[in-house]
Amino acid sequence: MTKDIELFSAPDTSLRQKVFQYIKSQIINGVYSAGDILLETKLAQELGVSRTPIREAIWLLEVEGLVETTAKKGAIILGISDKDVADICVMRQLLEGLAARWATPRLTDLELKELQKIVDLTEFYAQKDNIEEIADLDNKFHQTIYEASGSKMLNLTLSNFHKYIQVARLQSMHVENRLSQTITEHLALLEAFRSQDAEAAEKAMTYHVSMVHRNISSLYH
């Protein structure tokens, strides 16, 4: 039994939500591909649940635009299109800059130390070309800023955006010199945060996300 499936025994959320989050993560991570068909019976057996929470989860996935239900084929995965990724990158440039601006006066010394630790570890894993570890560290770096922004809605929106494009982000990290650029851009953000310069932090973050967008775009051309 995988860790994901073991989560279904946890009491913190409804079964429908657990099934929904599991299938959603499989789609976002590329385990399920666009065009694949979600079979209720197969998923129910795989997850050890009845078909009812599967059906409810598929409805939620359809609301989010990740699947499309047809009369003949059932639930077909739409996944994350290239346009979805491009749209998210543009929106991130606007919203992440705002998050950095709002976070600047709110970041504690402990959080600043954590951000520095993340950058140091990123440099360490960059030498080993360990992309998976670096991607995880990048998530933590940005999540710290989202939470420090003090906005629940901004945090929720940007956290979801980050998840939706994580496959593209992973691929973009293989672009030549991207890892060293990421470290440089994160250090520029840290300097702005330490200087309590909200405008500089916003500009640094906007530039950083624009570079991510440029590298992701290069994968599709």
Rank of each mutant, 00 (worst) to 15 (best):
V67W: 02
R101K: 14
N139D: 09
Q26I: 04
T122Y: 05
K73V: 08
L137A: 05
S151H: 04
N160G: 12
N155A: 13
I88S: 02
S149Y: 01
E46Q: 11
Q127H: 11
N177K: 14
S210E: 14
T206V: 13
A34T: 08
N160W: 10
I131N: 13
A135F: 07
N139C: 14
A86P: 02
K140F: 12
V209D: 03
R101T: 14
L158N: 01
K152Q: 07
T182L: 14
A198Q: 04
G35A: 06
S217M: 06
A168Q: 04
V90P: 00
S159C: 10
I76G: 03
L219K: 04
L7P: 03
L7N: 05
D4F: 12
K42D: 13
G65L: 06
Y32A: 14
N139L: 14
L115P: 00
G48V: 07
L190D: 00
K18Q: 05
T70C: 10
N29M: 10
D129Y: 10
I183M: 09
R214D: 07
S218A: 15
D12P: 00
A10S: 08
V19R: 03
E6G: 14
K152L: 08
D138W: 05
K3L: 08
K117E: 12
L137W: 02
H221A: 13
L7I: 06
H142F: 02
L60A: 09
L121A: 12
E147L: 15
N177V: 13
G97Q: 01
K163P: 02
S217G: 04
E147K: 15
M173Q: 11
A99L: 02
